[in-house]
Amino acid sequence: MLTDLLLTGLLDGARIGVAALGFALIFYTTKELHFAYGAILAACGYLYYSLVVDQGLPLLLAAPLALAFGAVVGAVIQRWLYRRLNDHLAVLLFSFGMAIILENVLHIMFGPTDKVLPAGALTRTVSVAGTPLRVIDLVTVAVFLVVWAGLWHMLERQQIGLAIRAVMRDSTMSDLVGIRTGRIKVLAYALGSAIGAVAGLIAVTRSGVRPGSGFDVMLFAFIATLLGAGKLTNVAAWSLALGLFMGLVAWPFPTELQTLFAFFAMLIYLVVRSLDVRSLRRPRLRRAEDRTGVSA
């Protein structure tokens, strides 16, 4: 029972991880709160669904198309829309607007109910070491590991990664030392949105997407991004930890409470992280007025 829950947790963690890595890449690089990320993720899921079911394209052809769509949309949004807005609040509000529009356009086009790919090779169940697992879950774990390793390799081992990390640390300084920060930001959006699209494809294959899926996915992506505190590797690790944590919580408690527990765990962690132990020992100070006998 417990091992099952832990395994489920790990799979959940991998799924959270894919979505979170894309969002975190964008947020850490540009410091922009791109709320439309989730909606674009859902849109890619719908596009993939539509290509496969309505157009009859093979999966392996539809998938790259959906990813490319995500990447292009992400890049275009950054290059032609966000760049012209003067501050982060404007970007945030603008992306709210886009998220609402996208979600409701999807609702109008596809209806409010879940769309899920018809059962196929990916949804079959296979037995791994005596435990029945769905192929798509194994694929998810593989994809998660590939994205994680790929991002790590790009950031730590390649020339372009150096530039991205510099922009993550300080965009203005990077500009001064000659890094094309504009291009790096567009790249982060393209890559991040493509990773988001992957999460969308996984969702539509596994359990389906609704117009509101975008916001649901973002909850955990946000939590992992917050906990990751600026490092993509941390985001991946925290995603797994979140999944495992929720698996563990589901052992003694009803599964409905998982999300609540994850949220409270995040709050508690944030509080602890920001607590300064030394600040607990503060001197008691007399105010100047007390000393001089003058009252306010």
Partner: peptide
């Protein structure tokens, strides 16, 4: 008065 470790907003009051 020893004010080591005072919090920033306490300064004006002192």
């Amino acid at each position: 008065q020893d004010i080591t470790g005072m919090r920033p907003h306490q300064g004006v009051g002192l």
